[in-house]
């Protein structure tokens, strides 16, 4: 009973912009710091320390940027679907900012995954482009992103744009498993997924550990990215309220503080 009440309280607070802004102050710093640390470690580890594949040689290292980009691109789309669901059901307007932040990042990462896949494929399998299952799935994902992007561009009204893109991303997310399965049916000859969180990877630890670091780094980067955009949107929407006024005027000049997120802690 008490837990239920607590949860309910939490849920209501989540709708409060001020509370959201305050609680995410530390999160955004955490994600940003972790992303920097993990990505620097990951880049150096993957490029200079991880062993080369005995068959593919050093082109294998491209996997360390290709796989995280593809994973995050797909997760961001699903994230958009979840945000869309929350936005539609509970009429939470903040979720549209999450969609607006996930959309360009996810779109660019999908394109990046396709590009690095081609750059990896050329020296390894002798061709820039293979019409295999995962290439097709990723290309379809790109078009799912492009569709929402085009839709958003076409609707001038912010509220309707939010609802339309929430609906479309939700429908797309429901369809992703069907699309993935049918594409796998279409071509069962592609390489099996080299890394997943549920299965034990077949790679030796010295190869998949840097991959894990990279994947975590990419996800922290996305967390930082999306949260920063949401926080800015909260400030913009609430700019006429007192707490924003106090926060913005008491803060040091932005250009004088390199780490903006640490200085705006819980004012007002």
């Amino acid at each position: 009973m008490k837990l239920k009440q607590k949860l309910k309280e939490y849920w209501h607070k989540l709708g409060s912009p001020r509370w959201f802004y305050q609680i995410t102050t530390n999160w955004v710093t955490f994600f940003g710091g972790s992303a920097l640390l993990l990505l620097v470690t990951g880049f150096v580890w993957a490029l200079a320390f991880a062993p080369a594949d005995y068959q593919q040689g050093n082109s294998f290292r491209i996997m360390y940027v290709h796989v995280p980009a593809a994973m995050l691109a797909q997760s961001l789309y699903i994230g958009m679907g979840v945000a869309g669901f929350i936005g539609l059901v509970w009429r939470m307007k903040l979720t549209d900012v999450a969609i607006a932040a996930c959309l360009p990042l996810g779109m660019v990462l999908t394109a990046l995954a396709l590009f690095t896949g081609g750059v990896w494929g050329k020296p390894t399998w002798g061709s820039w482009w293979e019409w295999d299952g995962r290439t097709v799935s990723t290309l379809v994902l790109l078009f799912l992103y492009v569709g929402i992007y085009a839709l958003r561009e076409a609707i001038p009204d912010a509220d309707l744009r939010a609802r339309a893109s929430a609906l479309v991303s939700l429908v797309g997310t429901v369809n992703i498993p069907i699309i993935k399965y049918s594409v796998e049916w279409w071509n069962t000859l592609h390489q099996s997924a080299s890394f997943s969180l549920t299965e034990k990877p077949a790679m030796p630890a010295e190869m998949w550990l840097p991959l894990l670091v990279m994947v975590l780094g990419f996800y922290c980067f996305a967390g930082h990215h999306v949260l920063s955009r949401m926080r800015l949107e909260v400030l913009t929407r609430e700019s006429s309220s007192r707490w924003v006024a106090e926060l913005m005027l008491n803060k040091n000049a932005v250009d004088g503080t390199p780490q903006t997120s640490t200085t705006d802690h819980g004012k007002g």
Partner: peptide, 14 residues
């Protein structure tokens, strides 16, 4: 990168 330098660096650069 064992003759794969261009590919690896282009991928990481992008």
């Amino acid at each position: 990168m064992g003759n794969h330098g261009l590919y690896v660096w282009v991928a990481y650069g992008s």
